[in-house]
Design a protein around this nucleic acid. Structure first.
Lengths: 260, 260
DNA sequence: GATAAAAGTTGGGTATGCCGAACTCTGCGT
DNA sequence: ACGCAGAGTTCGGCATACCCAACTTTTATC
């Protein structure tokens, strides 16, 4: 025997390396991975060796590590699992959007490929999760729309909320109260200096043209929002399946994979 | 730290001890647990000590072990999780009944209490899973209908399929092909001696009065079937919520529980 | 270019959960 | 009532995945 739950740890490392590595290219530091996972750097060193042995990362001593094609492919599958699970919990099981993250974090390691594909089918192949994060396709292609932080959006310009960081449930509840959701239209009206509040007009996705609210957001809330000049298209814009015209594609060069 | 995934192992032991102990009372042997879990008896000894330390089983050296009230309560919760997950996979995600067991085995350790209750609600509080096994209620009460093995049913008497062992997916597919399902009406017509085939009339749950098929089942298939004289009532028969008039109730004496 | 701070690695140690081998207890059969 | 087979336990080991503390390498600064 001797095959305990080793998968969970590896999967968590892959996810973190993927997200820290600017989605694929960059070398990520040991320390960054340790901080994100809440483990010590010595644990990361050990795991780096193990991942390298398994061909999932390239790792040179005292340098950082970078996902290999195989590691990237598996990381994209994990992202797909996580985001599909979140979408499923909200759409099919009536979770509020601030309740899904922790459950998804556990379930992503437990759902089979069959279940992932059944959820995907039942949800009608969603392209993004409840927080606006794009869902990689079954063959591992991620459409990454270009979006800017709300923090740097010029005053007076119209933007659409593209993605909302889902780490803090309390923040999500607060944002929901202020009317901010994915696809909401926002215009920054005023920025108070030195970390002061940001005042903005908010119009909910389906609201009337003149139906806007005024919200005052603190630093933490502003930092959680990514916005786009363009409104997300409900239908794909091109053959590649993008919902924004300005969009990167990330995918692992076909690795004939059979494991998992 | 030191908080790895210890829950899974404990939960698996509790489930096995529960099912081996004739649903609660009997002391189960170390060897039986080892055989069922596919581990060595030394592993069971160690775990028995740990479970006893945690107050989940009563264990006397060189004697077997028996679930405590707390252990029984947790075991019933695991049974609930497993069977609700199976029901959910079939009803809401389109699994075939032979596909659910393995996925449920993993998911039962990963679903949160919130998710269990959401599934339960969405399914309309089902009282049994796709294989006919009763689902304990949220407060840990299991209605265990009396059922007899098909192997000992007298020739010529009418019975209703109450439960079907779900361990072997191939067997389940075969049974489905022969028209056998939960609530199917069966009459044993002939038993060939020395482990020969059993021939029986089968009428599917919704079929016309004269719409019966003839099936020939081998030993293994016959052993997987539990039947009841009485047809399961679609609605509860009494205040206790039983769907059969002859039914045992199993529950842990209220233990004010907060963990998990 | 020396050197100290930062970043990464190694080594020794912990906890879980499993194993086989050796030892110990129980109880059955004579 | 004895003794032995079988069931149960203990012990030393293995693998994973962590930790801290000590050591090595890189880097950034003077």
């Amino acid at each position: 025997m001797a095959k305990t739950e080793n998968r969970t740890a590896i999967e968590d490392y892959l996810k973190v390396i993927f997200s820290l590595g600017e989605w694929q290219d960059e070398t990520v530091s040991n320390a960054a991975v340790a901080a994100r996972l809440g483990v010590s750097t010595s644990s990361v060193s050990e795991m780096a060796r193990k991942l390298a042995d398994n061909g999932l990362v390239a790792h040179k001593r005292y340098g950082g590590m970078r996902l290999t094609d195989e590691g990237l492919e598996q990381a994209l599958q994990m992202v797909r699992r996580h985001r599909l699970v979140e979408t499923f919990l909200v759409t099919s099981l009536g979770y509020a959007w601030d309740e899904v993250h922790d459950d998804a974090e556990v379930l992503e390691h437990a759902v089979s490929t069959l279940m992932v594909e059944r959820m995907d089918t039942q949800l009608g192949h969603p392209w993004r999760d409840p927080h606006g994060d794009p869902i990689p396709t079954a063959d591992g292609v991620l459409h990454q729309p270009t979006a800017e932080p709300l923090a740097t959006t010029p005053v007076g310009e119209r933007r659409f909320v593209a993605r909302i960081d889902d780490d803090d449930p309390a923040l999500l509840r607060w944002l929901a109260e202020t009317g901010i959701a994915v696809d909401a239209e926002v215009v920054v009206r005023e920025r108070k200096p030195f970390g002061g509040a940001t005042r903005l007009d908010v119009r909910a996705p389906g609201a009337a043209v003149d139906g806007h609210l005024v919200a005052e957001l603190g630093d933490q809330a502003v930092a959680a929002l990514l916005v786009s000049v363009e409104r997300a298209s409900p239908k794909p814009l091109n053959a590649k399946g993008c919902h924004y015209s300005d969009c990167r594609h990330i995918s692992a060069p076909r690795v004939s994979e059979k494991n998992r």
